[in-house]
Amino acid sequence: MVDRIFAGVLLIVTLAYTVIAFTAIRAPFQYDPLGPESWPQILSVVAILCLLFILWKPDASELGVSKQTWFRLAATVILLGAYAELYEPLGFILSTLLFGTALCAMLGGSILKSLIFGFATSVAGFLLCVTLLGLNLPEGELVEYLHKQASGLEEGVS
């Protein structure tokens, strides 16, 4: 059953892909026998055949995921989404501190240990990656704002 739903959803996406391949993609002029649309057309036919076969003969009937697990997964995804959204505004250190602590606590760590973990990964991660390895990580708008203030003050003084 789950197999059929998943294949059905994929089939809808594939049909959209197919329609675009057969109608929308077109080169303004071309000399080659195969244009940009031919390859997607071939692929879409193969994909539709595979999907129809799965719809006809599904083999996985259940996902075997309990309600509690769904809840945990959904929470993880929400945390990941929030982490991605806050990555630039808050900067690496703050967002990682929040994300690391929250996910660690959610997965069963005690609050204190989670806080230590979040703090350690965010600060150590930033120092290691930015200072030692020279990678590019966001400082965060807050830090940038403070920087600007500080340099502004200095300029004002001098």
Binding site: T96, L103, C104, L107, G108, G109
Partner: peptide, 22 residues
């Protein structure tokens, strides 16, 4: 324990992806 390992994977993945194009 897994509650340390799992967030660490996410943090590493995010660092890796962000550092390429930001």
């Amino acid at each position: 324990p897994q509650h340390y390992l799992t967030p660490l994977i996410a943090i590493l993945a995010f660092i890796g992806i962000y550092t390429i194009v930001g």
